[in-house]
């Protein structure tokens, strides 16, 4: 499992940093801190494509910036998902791999609906990622999202989110995730118990 982590000001991160650390401690997970490896955005395409080939599930871990990923993850897509590698008649390198985004959003969940201030659900806002995954022949799963992330520490919601995160990663690793049911959810952590089979 490859977790591509993007947070440009790690020293101020309250949620993403513990999420990244927890992921790095799960067996079978490769955690890549993109801003640390490419502080000048000069992404090494060969190396990144090599990493993709070596993993069965690809996860973006990031805060939600303007309804999308931080800039380096977009740069990563622009550079790494090349024609002939990720898409096109010859580009089948990613076929069948699992993809989802694990994100933290500042606003509360009520804000992410037609009548809320953001007018769209989080799954709708991430349609570009969903279509990118489809174009690359990947299996797209809805995001693993934490809402109201700015207050999560104060409200003591971090611990349960962290244990959900580890539980999800282990389930993906051990093939215990009910993919068909997961694909229909608005977000992965809406009902983890329903989509993860017991050990």
């Amino acid at each position: 499992m490859l977790v591509l982590f993007a947070h440009p000001s790690l020293e101020r991160s309250e949620v993403n940093r513990p999420l990244a650390r927890a992921a790095s401690e799960v067996d079978g997970v490769t955690l890549v801190d993109l801003y640390a490896e490419y502080p000048d955005f000069a992404i090494d395409v060969d190396r990144e494509q090599g990493r993709l080939l070596g993993h069965e599930a690809i996860v973006f871990l990031h805060p939600l910036y303007w309804y999308s990923t931080p800039a380096i993850l977009k740069e990563w897509q622009d550079l790494v998902l090349e024609h002939g590698f990720a898409y096109g008649s010859e580009g089948k390198a990613l076929h069948g791999k699992l993809f989802f985004s694990a994100l933290t959003a500042g606003g509360p969940e009520e804000a992410y609906r037609a009548e809320g201030v953001n007018h769209f659900t989080i799954r709708e806002l991430l349609l570009p990622l969903e279509q990118t995954a489809i174009m690359c022949g990947m299996i797209y799963l809805p995001p693993f999202a934490l809402f109201g992330a700015r207050n999560a520490v104060d409200q003591g919601r971090i611990e349960s989110h962290l244990s959900d995160w580890v539980r999800l990663l282990e389930a993906v690793r051990d093939d215990r995730l009910d993919i068909a049911r997961a694909q229909d959810l608005p977000r992965l952590n809406a009902d983890l118990g329903a989509i993860i089979a017991a050990n």
Binding site: I43, V45, D78, L79, V80, E82, H83, Y87, G88, S89, M135
Partner: peptide, 15 residues
């Protein structure tokens, strides 16, 4: 140009 390489001109026909 690596990575900003545009796909071939008629690539969408093969999708």
């Amino acid at each position: 140009e690596r990575g900003w390489t545009p796909p071939p001109k008629d690539y969408h026909r093969h999708l």
